[in-house]
Design a protein around this nucleic acid. Structure first.
Lengths: 237, 237
DNA sequence: AGACTCGGCAAGCAAGCGCTTAGTAGATCA
DNA sequence: TGATCTACTAAGCGCTTGCTTGCCGAGTCT
């Protein structure tokens, strides 16, 4: 029947469009999300939000990228905002874990800041599609969910601020204004908004440049960025 | 008549709402916009975009803030995007003029960078409502208008990059990676996204902190930020 | 006074939005 | 083989959106 052929064609068109605009998390951040069937909607939403922003993205955009009908989303998510929230949680939880893990590498403030910056920059560069969405669109969340995300962001800020302060107290850093400097460090670590994966710098190279810039900004001794370790050799070697 | 009373009431409600959410440009950036009648729609749009973002703002939001009916906008602007474009042009033209003017103050790369940073930070802090809109929502523009804005942004980047390079060539700065460092400087100067006018720092104080941070990041001599002048005393005094 | 201009209004249109509903193909069980 | 469940679809509802239309009162000119 003509009707059936039309339907098959619509399905094929959806799948073609889907493959063209696929987002696959370089670090596999969505590989363990349950239920399994929801993953394609999450990654489709990341891709759609990345291109147009949350508010300009329609549920039909997301459904098309996920290769489903407009109603398919609602099998797993009650609202468009639920999708954004789960994405924001995953992205924020990951960088929070990374930041906390960086503290375990060493006690030295220089080594810790270097490790925090290194992990954050490589993450924001490799996952620039995800982190651009997370760091730009989280502000579209409703007040309660926004508060949860803000709490996670504040934990990261606190870790950085504490480490900078400790470095100052130990006479390793020299900082005029703690709060302004902390925010500067945090802003520099988020390279997602401008990082270009087809540009000349790999995430690792970029990270080393930014470790150097930030340590210098903190007034660390000139040779500090060499002493800070490269995250591959032993710290106390 | 009851109908007439209702209309008067609707008008009064509009005006009350308008005054509550007013945006007035601290630097008077909209004072010379023509035609005169369009100004209230521009500032209303800045206020509305600031609160919700471009895509989440409705033309009715803007009209209400401007104290007009939904149709009032279209006396001056054909589309919602036209409003955003004029706002983006005004904001970008101002900081571009400021950046170019900073070059006239001195020939010294340290003095020039200091002056650029000082002007940019005070502008982004004082006009944080406008600059937050301009720097966040300009990406919602259509391709052609976006290209015009991007060209202005690139001119600012070029000025900063050239000055950093010149400082390196003169042996005043010491920079590992020119492009990464230039972007870092540009990112740090935009304090709009986090500046809080009820916080402890005035725009001028914040600017001096950031002049210091950035000059240190560029590897300028330790005493550079003192030598850089404070923008009030004579440069060669 | 009468004609004209202009800023603004009430009303409303077409399109697109988020989301709902009723129903079904296909896998899994007995 | 038939019952049951799950993931999904076609269709569409109610509402909001950006924008248009036809109109009008106040000010300005002749």
């Amino acid at each position: 029947m003509a009707a059936k052929a039309e339907l098959a064609q619509a399905g094929a068109k959806r799948m073609a469009f889907q493959r063209e605009h696929e987002y696959v998390s370089p670090r596999g951040l969505f590989d363990n999300v349950e239920p399994k069937g929801s993953r394609r909607f999450l990654t489709a939403a990341v891709s759609a939000f990345h291109g147009r922003g949350y508010h300009a993205t329609t549920t039909r955009d997301i459904a098309t990228l996920a290769g489903s009908s407009p109603a398919g989303i609602y099998t797993y998510y009650a609202t468009k905002a639920d999708l954004l929230y789960e994405i924001a949680l995953i992205g924020h939880q990951y960088i929070l874990d990374e930041t906390e893990a960086a503290l375990l590498v060493t006690d030295d403030p220089i080594g810790r800041i270097a490790e925090i910056v290194r992990r954050s920059v490589t993450y924001h560069a490799e996952e620039h599609v995800l982190t651009r969405v997370v760091n730009r669109d989280f502000q579209a969340l409703d007040v309660q969910r926004l508060a949860t995300i803000m709490k996670m962001r504040r934990r990261i800020s606190t870790i950085v601020r504490d480490e900078v302060r400790r470095g100052v107290e130990l006479g390793i850093f020299e900082v005029d204004h703690l709060e302004g400097t902390t925010i500067a460090v945090l802003r520099l670590m988020d390279v997602a908004s401008w990082y270009n994966e087809r540009g000349p710098m790999s995430p690792d190279e970029l990270a080393e440049v930014y470790v150097g810039l930030i340590l210098r900004m903190l007034g660390a001794p000139a040779a500090a960025s060499d002493q800070a370790g490269d995250g591959k050799t032993a710290v106390n070697g």
